[in-house]
Simulated assay, not measured.
Amino acid sequence: MATNTGQMGYLPRGGAIFCTIPDIFYLPELVFGGLVLSLVASTYLLPYNPQAYVISVAIFCFVVTFLWLLIFACGSHHNRSSWASADVAYHGFAALLYLSASVLLAYITIFWDIAVGRDELIYKLDVAAVVFSFLTTLLYVIHTIFSAIRWKSF
């Protein structure tokens, strides 16, 4: 059974996006990003600004990644290097946003637990959100690296 994982300079269409690297990372990015969003939203949003930033990043990346997945799945792109470069640019930007949100969320989780002291469930939810946020950052970084490799092959 042949897949498109070895072809360079190829932007997949339709179901092929679930068989090619880096596009295979779309679904885990959506799942982990959704987990970050739901975990942060289920805790106390104190302090407001940092938590609101984390939720904003999670919503933005979830929606845009889903739209990007639909563009590739529907075949709306035309095998041009401009789509490959836009893919690298978006995933690099998303990785940077998630990294900043992850660091901020980890800082707030540590600081808020020490300063105020939370109940055990809220703290566990915040820790889980931090872990999934860093995993989502890692997925976006890996996607960016493989997208850059594909972009260079055009």
Rank of each mutant, 00 (worst) to 15 (best):
F146R: 00
D23S: 14
A101W: 01
L39Q: 06
A94N: 00
F72M: 00
C19I: 02
T144R: 06
V40N: 04
G75Q: 03
Y48S: 07
T144I: 09
Q7S: 09
L135S: 07
I59F: 05
I17D: 08
S82M: 04
I17M: 12
A115N: 08
G6Y: 14
S133A: 08
F111G: 09
L125H: 11
L139V: 04
L121N: 13
P28E: 08
I108L: 12
G33N: 10
V88S: 01
D87I: 01
Y10F: 15
L97S: 03
A129L: 10
K124G: 07
G33C: 05
A16Y: 15
D23E: 13
D87W: 09
F18R: 11
F111K: 15
L139E: 04
F72A: 03
D113V: 06
L30Y: 12
C61N: 15
L135W: 03
A41P: 01
R13K: 11
A89D: 07
H91M: 03
A84W: 04
T136W: 01
P22K: 04
V36F: 07
I122C: 08
V54M: 01
Y10N: 06
L70C: 11
L11P: 05
L37M: 08
I122E: 13
F154M: 02
T5H: 14
R80F: 15
V141M: 09
